[in-house]
Nucleic acid binder design. Structure first.
Lengths: 334, 334
DNA sequence: CTGAAAGCGCTAACAA
DNA sequence: TTGTTAGCGCTTTCAG
């Protein structure tokens, strides 16, 4: 691997001149520039990014810390982030906290040690940890779950309204006794729950504690919660889950109890997946603009890297209701 | 951020001594060691990884280049790689080639520029490109698809045998006219096809060109291929696809044609997914030991980083046949 | 056992 | 416009 020194020697100039050519500085005589360019080509020179980073005290790497890489939502996000970052010449370090605040904190340190330019974070657990680390020298954009009171750029969904619309859809289709399985320990789960309750009230119904469950946003927990709900003396007519993992678990439970969807129990959720339209009946859901979220988050991050003092923004994207068979109008029996 | 210099000053020693303490060198008097450790703690010192990398001409980062991050198989792999790498103090750069050899080549360069210790690669497109880059200074482990004639560590599935068992299972359940939708341009697709044809022959059947399709390993292509197959004058009794994306597409096509599984057409595939057991009937498939694959690949990579000249290995893992409803014994009609 | 000093590859003052 | 030089933070000879 040729270094800048060898290029300089080959072109008969100083390393500073080579560096200027590399940086496209205008203050280089065309003749020299040519010679340098030629030497670069001949030696197949590529700048050492490490050295450059050491000098600049910053890398062209950004970190993406997600709470669960098995969640297709985050897979989609990571694609978008990767695409966008790549276009801007940045590469991506992907980390998975598995909903474990300890891992989150460790990874935030890894990020700092790696001198990343910035981090896109879907925070897990308590606010404080994230906030404190955040002082630690790199730009941060929060996605999916907000950190209350934090002065950070965020890209979020209109959770309350989306949940409201999703629930209203059920209500309008004749479902009344609607249960909600929500991801615990995140603003997202709470906000979606709030939207759900607002809709109930708007239709003159009172939310029942019995019908609302906060559980870890994972398949197994969704399964267990759904099972308990379905086994209630007076089981719900519909299930609403706040992400696709919970929905998968709920569906498993419904299958296990041998219930027909939507006749015996309807199912609606957040997040589009491959399978949501493949199961029968296909699942009604709120689709998040995942690509947009990832792209926007990356753009915000890179803008902040360029201009650290700019005022923070909070971008709220709108979810789209996709009506499918799992919430078809209810046929009253009895 | 304190530097080694400040620690040295605080402890009243030279930077060399601090470095020795950091490296756990035995040649440091306990008293000094204590002082240094204390200074490190007080200053919250953390070594600058960039500087260390510049010095060492190598980082503690590895790259994972996958051909399609939307494929749950690669999501699972990336989790395993990430876990394992993390345990060894390495972090992960994840890249997605989208089955595009150009992107693959670009990313291989990104890897080189980032001075990664090594790369785990699921190669896309022609062998040559990958091979050539591979000389370029870092360790490489190939997963999922082999590169013929390449002297690289590889972690692969027993594709031929797995496909053989999957096909045999169909044959034993009474299916005779079996079509195969295979991922194109990869050894994996070809090997699985070979296993399929071997099984047919073993059961006295002749593979028909008409029933074998090589297509891009993606949902849309699986959908299109399945549709054409189902619309054949004499349609197949069973469909075999070589990954979960193709299976999703095929299932979509089956649904669109309103066919019952398995009565009118059976469906079997490679790769376990969330949805394979949620659709009705659940899908019979070959489950790959994804976690094992990712873990093994990472271990091989790190071993090679430590000992570049060791002879290359090729680890073949066994797929597991999970029999489910989509291939239930055939009820002969007519 | 410890410290001084060189140098990894690059960029940015500062001089010329 | 160009070159000289210092230095980013670290490790590792080489002396002592």
């Amino acid at each position: 691997m040729a270094s800048i020194k060898e290029v300089a020697r080959a072109a008969g100039v100083s390393t500073a001149t080579v560096s200027r050519v590399l940086a496209n500085s205008p203050h280089v005589r065309p003749a020299l520039r040519e010679r340098v360019l030629k030497a670069i080509k001949e030696l197949e020179y590529r700048p050492n990014l490490i050295a450059r980073s050491l000098r600049a005290q910053q890398t062209t790497t950004i970190g993406l810390i997600v709470s669960d890489i098995r969640n297709p939502f985050f897979t989609a996000i990571s694609r978008a982030v990767e695409d966008t970052a790549y276009e801007e010449g940045y590469s991506l370090i992907l980390c998975n906290t598995d909903e474990d605040p300890k891992k989150e904190s460790i990874y935030l340190n890894v990020m700092r040690d790696a001198n990343v330019a910035g981090v896109i974070l879907s925070p897990t657990g308590p606010t404080a940890a994230g906030l404190r680390e955040l002082e630690a020298g790199f730009a941060v954009v929060v996605i999916d779950r907000s950190i209350p009171d934090a002065d950070v750029d965020m890209v979020l969904l209109d959770n309350v309204d989306s949940a409201y619309r999703l629930t209203r859809h059920l209500l309008e289709n004749g479902y009344q006794r609607i249960a909600a399985i929500c991801g615990e320990r995140s603003t997202t789960g709470r906000e979606r729950c709030a939207g759900y309750e607002q809709a109930l009230r708007a239709y003159g119904l009172l939310p029942t504690a019995e019908l609302v469950r906060f559980v870890p946003p994972q398949i197994e927990a969704g399964y267990a919660a759904a099972l308990r709900l379905l086994d209630l003396p007076e089981p719900p007519e519909a299930l609403l889950t706040t992400n696709s993992l919970l929905a998968a678990g709920a569906l498993e439970a419904i299958r296990e109890r041998g219930l027909r969807i939507p006749d015996e129990v309807a199912l609606v959720t957040f997040d589009e997946t491959t399978w949501a339209s493949l199961v029968q009946p296909p699942i009604t859901l709120i689709e998040q603009p995942t690509y947009e979220i990832g792209k926007t988050a990356t753009e915000l991050l890179l803008q902040r890297v360029a201009e650290p003092e700019r005022p923070t923004r909070r971008v709220i994207l709108k979810g789209r209701l996709l009506v499918r068979g799992s919430s078809a109008p209810r046929v009253r029996c009895g």
